[in-house]
């Protein structure tokens, strides 16, 4: 089910929409307002302009995404990104996997970890704390109905607090959202293409 993850070291992929993005010059007040808060600080990309067709949902989702991925304290940000990469890899979202692999590496300076996941998937050899995080993220992504009390023990054994477990759950769940949006409204452009840009 999961496709190979694109090599994140080659730079970020561009994303191309399957429906016409909102034309910023013709955008309604509500659409302009919704576009003010984007989850990254980059220019308004095609992805945000497509989501602006439903400004009410976009204006809630952007701060929700930021709260989950960037909220202070709790689970270290790199481990939220590890959850995001795991979900993206299983859901087959090459774009999301490459962007968040790069963020993980920026935060940890450990490109070899993402290189192993790139090569071997979510079963790649990892230290025990990351193994516990990836195992939970993978199970939650594949089949949330199968999650039960026993799945908490490996996370507890690695010292994760309730808040850290909640943060990881939020991050993995958010990528169950992001991966589906991104893959149902467009696709990454073939490598070497120049047009389009996207902000997660």
């Amino acid at each position: 089910m999961s496709k190979p993850m694109r090599d994140f070291t080659k730079g970020e992929l561009e994303w191309s929409p399957w429906i016409e993005p909102v034309d910023l010059d013709k955008a309604t007040a509500g659409q302009r307002d919704a576009l003010k808060i984007t989850p990254s600080s980059r220019a308004v990309g095609a992805y945000s302009l497509v989501l602006a067709h439903d400004p009410e949902a976009l204006s809630e989702r952007s701060p929700l995404y930021n709260g989950i991925m960037f909220g202070a304290k709790g689970l270290p940000r790199a481990e939220r990104e590890l959850g995001a990469v795991t979900a993206s890899r299983i859901n087959g979202c090459a774009y999301c996997a490459s962007v968040h692999a790069k963020r993980f590496v920026d935060l940890t300076k450990e490109p070899e970890v993402m290189a192993r996941i790139h090569a071997d998937g979510v079963e790649a050899k990892l230290d025990t704390r990351r193994r516990a995080i990836v195992d939970y993220a993978a199970k939650l992504t594949r089949d949330p109905a199968s999650i039960g009390a026993a799945d908490l023990a490996p996370l507890r054994a690695q010292g994760l607090s309730d808040l850290e477990v909640l943060d990881l759950t939020h991050a993995v769940a958010m990528f169950g959202w992001a991966n589906r949006l991104m893959q149902s409204l467009g696709a990454p452009l073939p490598e070497g293409s120049e047009t389009g840009s996207a902000a997660l």
Partner: peptide
Amino acid sequence: NFQSRVLAGLRM
């Protein structure tokens, strides 16, 4: 899909 996964984590 998001909501179901958040609920699963809270149930755990």
